[in-house]
Design a protein around this nucleic acid. Structure first.
Length: 263
DNA sequence: AAGCCAGTCAACCGCAGGGGT
DNA sequence: GACCCCTGCGGTTGACTGGCT
């Protein structure tokens, strides 16, 4: 009945790893590698651990080529951007970040970024509850096979966000982050000119290198800074009467000084 | 000082999928 | 094609920690 456990739960140790266990695993792998077989590795290494546990410990913690510690604004921006496109494909997202593990990225999202976005969403009473983007992509960017773009389905921020200090400080603390946000489109496929149309905002087919504002939503509703618009468009936004809600997209000033022209 | 609470992160669990037989 | 074994992945849990009351 049911699946056979991968190892004898009575015989193996569980819970946190001791320094001695870490040393034993590290030494064994340094000397012999994993030999492509994690199941038999614990016995050979003299560890009373499940092979899966050894693999996880090595991949997420002991491996020498991984980095722990705080995520940079640039990394945050990449994670947010990729999550909006891929959903919870943590291994794929982690692969786009240098020396980060999927577990780290997942934890960072669940403990910090998701909370930060939820806080931003709380800036407006009009927001729906956060929801993960669907797995199936509805269309793709012409620039990259990686950039699948499901409908943005995370908290939509209406333009009241312009006046929310928390949002300003937490979601996009620096213009540097905005620079990183452009990276997925940096292969030249995106065109300059920054349309304010809803279709352009939601498809990403048009954006501006002359960044004044990041669109943080679109037809599908979403919080992820996907697209940019030009200073000219920003001027248009500033004069729009519809609470700065333009053509089905939601716009967010990268430069906090610009926000004063919008509120 | 003690208790509570929220945040963080390492680790576990179960499932999916690939490869070998 | 069916079955088994193993790895990889994503969701979840629980221990630990630091801040607050």
């Amino acid at each position: 009945m049911g699946r056979t456990p991968c190892c004898d739960r009575e015989a193996v140790k569980r819970g946190p790893w001791s320094p001695e266990e870490d040393d034993a695993l590290r030494d064994y792998i340094n000397r012999h590698g994993t030999a492509g077989n994690w199941i038999s590795l614990p016995n050979k290494a003299g560890l009373r651990r499940c092979g899966k546990s050894c693999r996880l410990r090595w991949l997420n913690y002991l491996r020498p080529d991984i980095r722990h510690g705080a995520f940079t604004d640039e990394e945050d921006a990449i994670i947010i951007s990729l999550y909006s496109k891929l959903g919870s494909k943590w291994s794929t997202i982690a692969a786009q970040l240098e020396r980060r593990t999927d577990n780290d990225v997942k934890n960072h999202w669940n403990t910090k970024l998701k909370r930060r976005l939820a806080a931003a969403a709380a800036c407006t009473p009009l927001l729906p509850l956060p929801a993960p983007p669907p797995l199936a992509a509805t269309h793709t960017s012409p620039s990259s096979s990686l950039l699948l773009l499901p409908p943005l389905a995370v908290p939509t921020v209406k333009t009241e966000a312009y006046t929310c200090d928390d949002f300003l400080q937490q979601l996009l603390p620096t213009a540097t982050a905005a620079t990183a946000l452009r990276d997925p489109f940096a292969d030249g496929a995106a065109t300059d000119g920054g349309s304010t149309s809803a279709s352009a905002a939601s498809s990403g087919s048009n954006w501006s290198a002359d960044t004044g504002v990041v669109v943080v939503g679109g037809g599908g509703g979403g919080l992820f800074p996907e697209f940019c618009m030009s200073s000219d468009d920003l001027a248009g936004a500033a004069t729009a009467e519809d609470d700065h809600f333009i053509g089905g997209g939601y716009y967010y000033p990268l430069d906090p000084s610009l926000s004063s022209s919008l509120v």
